[in-house]
């Protein structure tokens, strides 16, 4: 597993796309800091970008990577290696290199603008952790989609659909439900609904840490009231872990049964 991880990371770190992705974050970081010149404000802006864009890029990269390495995976399957180890090696390779692009790409500009001397270093760190989580979750979702769909066009279609549902449509539907049922107590409902979506969950997680009540919104406020900041973060991190583990298990199960 470790060998496959090593080689797929190596392969990815040398591909053009990793650099495009890395430069994107690098430029984004510098531009935001140049415009804001305030590290703590830039953290908030970056959060909005991370929770929306990281999932999209992870899921698209995941689908692309799987289809591109399909024949190579077949070559590996004919080697004396346990099936699940091949998958996990490739999965970690992709997720880790995407996360590295994110961490290094954003890390450099923030370090240059005096992150280490500012108060928001922990906020920034949490932002990267959340970004990493989103990478791992959405790469797993991408692999599940591709394992079920041999047809590339369909695979890409479903990937974009999943992202669209979780990043955009979900919030819309959630809002509509909140408005329609505003006469009823919706605290528990909104808590559960937020936990069912990793993107919403990440947003809440960061906002709880930043402690900006204006941006918290309804669910954030409920979260805060229900759990308090410390418990709220702990419980949302726990749910994040569940969000990570379930797709990974589903992915391994499908891979072990699949015909190549």
């Amino acid at each position: 597993m470790f060998k496959i991880f090593k080689y797929s990371t190596y392969d990815l770190l040398r591909s053009r796309w990793s650099y495009v992705y890395f430069s994107f974050y690098l430029i984004l970081g510098f531009v935001l800091l140049f415009l804001n010149s305030d590290v703590s404000k830039a953290v908030i802006t970056i959060m909005n970008i991370i929770v929306i864009l990281t999932p999209l890029i992870a899921i698209i990269f995941g689908v692309m990577y799987y289809y591109n390495t399909k024949e190579f995976t077949e070559l590996l399957l004919a080697q004396p290696i346990k099936r699940s180890k091949i998958l996990i090696g490739q999965y970690l390779g992709l997720s880790v290199s995407l996360s590295l692009s994110l961490i290094v790409g954003l890390g450099i500009p923030f370090a240059v603008y005096g992150l280490f001397m500012s108060m928001v270093i922990f906020d920034f760190f949490l932002l990267l952790v959340v970004g990493g989580f989103l990478n791992f979750i959405f790469v797993a979702l991408a692999f599940i989609i591709t394992l079920y769909n041999e047809n590339r066009i369909k695979g890409f279609g479903y990937a974009i659909l999943v992202w669209l549902l979780l990043a955009v449509v979900y919030d819309g539907v959630f809002m509509i439900i909140l408005i329609i049922f505003k006469e009823y107590p919706l605290d528990t409902f909104s808590l559960v609904v937020t936990m069912l979506n990793p993107i919403d969950l990440s947003r809440i997680l960061i906002l709880l840490e930043l402690d900006i009540s204006v941006l918290l919104g309804y669910t954030g406020a409920v979260f805060k009231k229900f759990f308090g900041t410390g418990m709220g973060m702990l419980s949302s991190l726990t749910v994040m872990f569940v969000w990570l583990i379930i797709p990974i298990l589903l992915m391994i199960r499908k891979f072990n049964k699949k015909d190549f």
Binding site: Y7, S8, Y10, D11, L12, R14, S15, N68, T69, K70, E71, F72, E74, L75, A78, Q79, P80, I81
Partner: peptide, 18 residues
């Protein structure tokens, strides 16, 4: 058992950047 067999697949496609 696969340690004792060699397989030549029909389409050869390897990681591009190696």
């Amino acid at each position: 058992y696969r340690n004792n067999l060699n397989y030549l697949p029909q389409i050869a496609n390897f990681p591009n950047n190696l």
